[in-house]
Design a protein around this nucleic acid. Sequence first.
RNA 1: GGGCGGGUAGCUCAGUUGGUUAGAGCACAUCCCUUACAAGGAUGGGGUCGCAGGUUCGAGUCCUGUCCCGCCCACCA
Length: 895
Amino acid sequence: MSKELPKTYDFKNIESKMYQWWWDQGYFKPTNDPASINHDPDHKPYVISIPPPNVTGELHLGHAMFVSMEDLMIRYHRMKGIPTLWVPGTDHAGIATQMLVERALAKEGIRREDLGREKFLEKVWEWKDKYHDRIVAQIRRLGASCDWDRERFTLDEGLSKAVREAFVRLYEEGLMYRGSRIVNWSPKLQTAVSDLEVEYKSEPGTLYYFKYMLADGSGYLPVSTTRPETIPGDSAVAVHPEDPRYQSYIGKTVRVPIIGREIPVIADEYVDREFGTGALKITPAHDPHDYAIGKTHHLQEINIMTKDAHMNEQAGKYAGMDRFECRKAIWADMKEAGLVIKEEPYQMSIPHSQRSGEVIEPMISMQWFVKMESLAKPALEAVRSGEIKIIPDHFTKVYYNWLENIQDWCISRQLWWGHRIPVWYCKDCGEMMVSRTDIHECTKCHSHNVEQDPDVLDTWFSSGLWPFSTLGWPEKTPDYDYFYPTSMLETGYDILFFWVARMIMDGIHFTGKVPFTEIYLHGLVRDEHGEKMSKTKGNVVDPLIVMDELGTDALRFTLLVGSTPGNDTNLSVKKVEANRNFANKLWNAGRFVIGALDKAPAEADGEVEPTAADRWIWSRMQEVIRDVERLFGSHQYGEAGRQIYDFFWGDYADWYIEIAKIQLNKGGNTAFNTARMLIRILDTCLRLLHPFTPFVTEELWGHVKEAAIDKGEAFAPAAGWEDALIIAKWPEAEDYNDAEAVSALNRLREVIRTIRNLRTERKVEPGKRIEAIIAAGDSKAVFEDMKHALCYLAYLDEEKLVIADSAEKPEDMVSTAVSGVSIYLKLHDEVDAEAEKARLNAELKEIQGQVDRLEKLLASPFAEKAPAAVVDKERARLAQFKETAANLEGQLASL
RNA sequence: GGGCGGGUAGCUCAGUUGGUUAGAGCACAUCCCUUACAAGGAUGGGGUCGCAGGUUCGAGUCCUGUCCCGCCCACCA
């Protein structure tokens, strides 16, 4: 006797224990480990590097999504017997983490400058240690089967070494340079940020028209701008060289309003004659275009702002003012001075700092840049040639477009938390030293007065090396040799440029190999109405709470099944609830199957004859295995999950288990075979579902296995029971399809549904066993075989049931027909002939409609042009409809 | 301005070589605590697949045009 399992699946008690057990058993470790003595380098592994979450981040649905996806991929390959490695790790997340710590310190009234660099960094490391454990525990909770012994952190020793190696090599190759350029400056964070870290937002603004007075007093040049506060930084006014209105102005000088400085009027083709007044003020130090024009015309670059975007002494009387206050102040002053022409409302696209939100100020500063063009070329080629495949395909275009127009990458950040730039400057002779190791002495003048560049690198610089730095690069470690290049890069499409493209460029450049061969991009998780989740909107779904309430499997299944590659998915708690119910359905089906074993003999007595139902469910099972394999092969994981769900619930639980109850009661070989089939299907489904819902499947599988082993050898899978589901063999479809059984069961189910429908419609008491005659024609034998199941499922009176080839309708019965089978039922004592007539006519009308439709179809060119199989299918269908129609007509006539 | 994705049941979404009666979950209605499961079961209502053309024997699926929504890239001050 098997032990009694609780009525509902208790995920709370199972999840954490199960996870620990998997880990303790070593199941997350790659088989064929390069460290082992029996290592076979030709047995190729399947490897994923985790997209490292921010070390101080809090788990959100984006994490839940990628963990679910990647864990699915890993578990699937593991079950296929492929050595799998999922490398976990975390990212130091320069700006994000530094902001967080600064904010926390601010609550205590401490600024980072008060602490100084060293003390501040100590604080951040403390944070890192504390929050690292939290995020990692949360990732584990999702069931991530990573090899935690190989966990890495972007700032750990090995990775820091990789970063230095990469930096120095780029420098030596002439791909890295330092220069004073106009960059996106974040006044709040007081650092440069890359182009990707700038978000443009459309906002209403004003276009200001004003007079640039000619220095010789002969009039003015009308100019328009959206940023009057930059006037003090103007070094020229530009007009189009062919603009007839302004020909006479070119070469003259004008006076900067309020400031009084004289600046030239220049001609440049960049100026759009149609826009505004057709005259453009040039502020090289605070606008990227003006900067470029300034360079060609050798204009002065006048920085008028401080690092926190207040006006500096170059702005004269406005010094010390915030830039937006200055805008108002200077405009007011100009109004007073009679320099204002007009203002008009104007929709603008304003650059904001992605991280800190404030308006970006273009500023000139000394930064480090990577030349991207030569790195981009092979990265483009790798995708163009098909060496790397992006899923879904349409993102290749996005990828090309970005790489074809790539700009140099500003990689220095004026922060403290991150990889310090490996460059030293001699304060005595000015020598610049780029080095893999720390420099204490000037290589030129041997002075010890050397100082390291204060800046750190963009976080994404280290992320770009992730797939190989985590495996030991630049060392040629056994891990690197065996596991690199990795197989699959799975992440959200939102970081295609930030991360994916850079890894490809870096991978090819530094290792000579593409870092992975497939890229799967998942969509973003939104709320149930497709809105972006945000704290201000209050629509954030916390995965931790969802897991607490509904279980990890339910969340995972929802995310996996609810998403198609590259498309955003809307998540609602309702869906998770439905999938919690599915986990519970699995659990209870499992309970039934375990109990069913007690009702069957332990072994067969001679030849075992499967019933039509057995043959039907086994055929369907093979079909599902084939479908799932095909869908996994094309990365349609969601559809695969749905197929298993539908089969399990709709075919196995709703029908086969119900029929099995009857078959078990028959005892003997039928019962034996039924119990074995119940076990085999359940086992197969648990295997197929394991990558989606690892916890409930592993737990249940363990109980099923135990019960089956107790029962006897006959109940074991062909290859025997493995130690755990997580490492159990992935199902392979048998070449088995019993078309006859499939169609017989379809017919049986139709008949049962039709009887139930009539019962409900005619309000027959649910508990009443009714008399029936089934005129089944050719299918008579099947119906006889399935007689008990039919009575059980349609609630017929078995003793009075008649199954015949054909039969006349008795007076006291109502009749109907479906799938060519005539059905007579004694629902009530009285039969309302008129009502029956009406109903049968309605049914006949519908069937006749089908007959007409199909006859027309088969008389059309369809019959010759469509493939024979398709035509045959329709012919068979027509034949059945015709038979049904004939049955109904006969029934009507007898009324 | 360029590009991409989407528009299918009241809601959220599936529907991948075009195959002829378009599916699911939730919601809704009626009934049922039947010994795996009420987190369940049975039955039912609900869709001219955004619109207009085209290709085809056949179109939710392919092509063209068009409208609406969302996103990405670029950034004319």
